[in-house]
Simulated scan of single mutants.
Amino acid sequence: MAEFAFAIPGDPDQRTGGYLYDRRLAAELPRQDWQVRPVRLPDGFPFPDAADLAATNRLLAGLPDDMPVMIDGLAFGAMPEVVARHAARLRLVALVHHPLGYETGLSPQAADRLVASERAALAHARHVVVTSTTTAQTLATTFGVAEAKLTVALPGTDPLPVATGSGDAAPALLAVGSVLPRKDFPALVDALATLQDLPWRLVIAGSLVRDLVEAGRLRAAIDRHGLAERVSLTGEVAADELHALLHRSDLFVSSSRYEGFGMALAEAVAAGLPVVAVA
């Protein structure tokens, strides 16, 4: 069985779409006769400091020559100098969920720096795996990645029982995702505030601690519209809790401004829920 290093920044057990994808990929690779060697990179990506970059350099230097090394894009695009240092010795593969500079809430200068950094780093990748055709097109047209170096590996969805719905007079709406600027849950609350004459209730399931400022914006929007009794924030939920929420919801809603793929939407469709999403 060939050995394959998989480098992921931070806690690999985080319940975001990207980390869930990475964990499933690592679990499935042995079925393709790859022995996966996990490499945990520092937490600071995609904004690493000098210590994070030095530690990452040491971790890559400790891998044997010619080893295939897949690096999650949260780190790969943010360390072009480190990537360049090891590109000739290791078979580096970038795993890109979506470009770092496309994250909502960045200043134009920070976004431009991340785009330039990721473009420089990707030039040193022997191959690039992306999770959607949209991301593949973006990397080919904007980041200069040759189409021959790109492989689209779509996220899958496990079979789910068809949702039964809430059975309530007030439709149960569900939104899923970490509370981050890109998900723009305050805009969802603002939109629903215009429908207060209609019966509905909303559950937002996702981490409230990844961006405390954005979580504060969301809570302020709920309070401003007087919707505390109609909008529930669960925080991050485990897989079985999420499946239970999907099963008893009537409609899935998404205010996300950008998605590399949209795994939460796909899971809602797998459960048979109708979806309303931002274009």
Rank of each mutant, 00 (worst) to 15 (best):
M1P: 12
M1S: 14
F4C: 01
I8V: 15
G10I: 03
G10Y: 04
D11W: 01
D13G: 11
D13Y: 03
D13H: 10
R15H: 05
G18R: 00
L20R: 11
R23L: 00
R24D: 06
L25R: 00
L25C: 07
R31Q: 12
D33A: 14
D33T: 13
W34R: 11
Q35N: 13
V36R: 01
P38F: 03
V39E: 02
F45Y: 14
F45W: 03
P46N: 08
F47A: 09
F47I: 04
L53G: 08
A54R: 14
A55Q: 15
T56F: 02
T56I: 05
T56C: 15
T56G: 04
L59T: 04
L63D: 03
M70P: 00
I71M: 07
G73D: 03
A75D: 02
F76Q: 01
A78D: 07
P80T: 07
P80S: 06
V82T: 14
R85K: 14
L90H: 04
L95H: 13
H97C: 00
P99W: 04
Y102S: 12
Y102E: 14
E103K: 11
T104F: 10
G105I: 12
L106W: 10
P108A: 04
P108D: 10
A110L: 11
A111E: 10
V115I: 14
A116Y: 04
S117V: 01
L122A: 01
L122R: 05
H127S: 14
V130A: 06
T135M: 02
A136M: 12
Q137L: 12
L139E: 09
L139M: 08
F143D: 10
F143S: 09
F143I: 11
G144V: 07
A148Q: 14
K149H: 15
T151D: 09
T151E: 13
L154K: 10
L154Y: 13
P155A: 08
G156Y: 03
P159S: 07
T164D: 02
G165I: 08
G167L: 01
G167D: 07
D168Q: 14
A170P: 12
P171R: 00
L173D: 05
L173M: 09
L174W: 05
G177I: 11
S178D: 08
S178W: 04
V179Q: 11
V179K: 09
D184F: 01
L188F: 08
V189K: 00
A191S: 14
A193Y: 05
Q196H: 06
D197N: 11
R201W: 11
L202Y: 07
L202R: 02
E214R: 09
G216Y: 11
A220M: 09
A221P: 10
I222M: 04
H225I: 11
L227D: 09
E229F: 05
R230Y: 01
R230N: 09
V231E: 08
S232H: 12
G235R: 04
E236T: 13
A238F: 06
A239R: 15
A244R: 15
S249F: 05
L251N: 08
F252A: 13
S255L: 12
E259D: 05
G260Y: 07
M263I: 15
L265A: 15
E267I: 03
A270Y: 07
A271S: 13
V276N: 01
V276T: 06
A277P: 05
V278H: 14
A279V: 06
